[in-house]
Amino acid sequence: MTTVSDRPLTSFPSLETPVFNLGKETQPHRQSRIMVRFHNIQKTYSNGAKALINLNLQVKRGEFLFVTGPSGSGKSTLLKLLYGAEKPTDGKILVDGTDLAKLKGDRLSLLRRRIGVVFQDYKLIPRRTVYENVAFVLWAQGYTRKEIRRRLIPTLRMVGLQDKAECFPEQLSGGEQQRVSIARAIVGTPPILLADEPTGNLDYDNSQQVIKILKKLNSIGITVIITTHDEHLVRMSDNPVVQLREGRLFHML
């Protein structure tokens, strides 16, 4: 099992070299300390299921927030609202100063480039190698080959997969696949990282490793929102926690 790289964080290209594009569009909001703001959010699915009820939440820039709650309590819905996969029935969501409700088409695509998402089911592309899976994000955003190569190696090293670059997803363990999906989420150096049950399918050691990576990312300034139903994981860390129960939000800490 490969371990998380212990190299100094400066090897991660994004922070000291302002090559990434979060600078341009977010400039006016950079002073704002609030990264994510939910305002009176209601979400009712078309089958009548009430996923979120009157939800208010603020996440500060650079925060590491746990969202806990049993399955079906609305955790995934909360994240989906954030990356625009679902639209709120009512209320307002601001991400990095941008109102999500008004975004459609290409402008939504541009916002998504500022949000990294780690999925519970990894969502890796089966017939592409680890390298290609991660590079995919940068291809999709129109980066040059050279720039992609420059970013990819440090990113893979960050999640400890530099030796597995040419492997296909099915040749990897669950923990490794999850780390590929983390690499994919952060290679575009987004200011926000969303992780939907990133440890849901992993054993204890692998979960610890994933959390360690996320913490490391948080320590270099990325705002991390992570959902989990694993109370043990939450208790081990001293980060703020909110709990969702039947669509209502409770602040725990």
Binding site: A85, S109, R112, R113, V117, Q141, G188
Partner: peptide, 9 residues
């Protein structure tokens, strides 16, 4: 995945 990582249509 492309849509989720912000590729335009």
């Amino acid at each position: 995945v492309m849509q989720l990582v912000g590729a335009t249509s």
